[in-house]
């Protein structure tokens, strides 16, 4: 269950990285279309894997409730993490440009 949770978190992070804006903020370079496609494909694959490894027993209905709850928490976490990161980036940029002016 913990494995599935972490897989899902990582998958969502990959999916968010497949978007140019977030990728730029995290890695300071633009994202080529090929890479973006790869990232998103891999992300969806991992998402499916996390669902599969949770549901793969006789308690499938119960486990899908778990999976959806995890999904809610993880999307929020990834969204907050990315926003926090991009805010730092903006602040740093602002500080740099001020330094340049002085």
């Amino acid at each position: 269950m913990i494995l599935s949770y972490l897989l899902q978190l990582f998958a969502l992070w990959l999916l968010s990285m497949a978007m140019n804006k977030h990728f730029r903020h995290s890695f300071k370079r633009t994202l080529s279309i090929r890479h973006a496609q790869m990232l998103s494909k891999f992300g969806w694959l991992l998402l499916a894997a996390s669902f599969a490894c949770l549901v793969n027993n006789e308690l499938a209905p119960l486990m899908s409730v778990y999976w959806l709850s995890f999904l809610a928490l993880n999307i929020l976490l990834v969204a907050l993490f990315n926003s926090w990161q991009s805010r730092h980036k903006i602040k740093r940029l602002a500080a740099n440009s001020q330094g340049a002016v002085v």
Partner: peptide, 9 residues
Amino acid sequence: RDFFTVRLN
């Protein structure tokens, strides 16, 4: 469209 963004400013 721009998933996972919360504008904090």
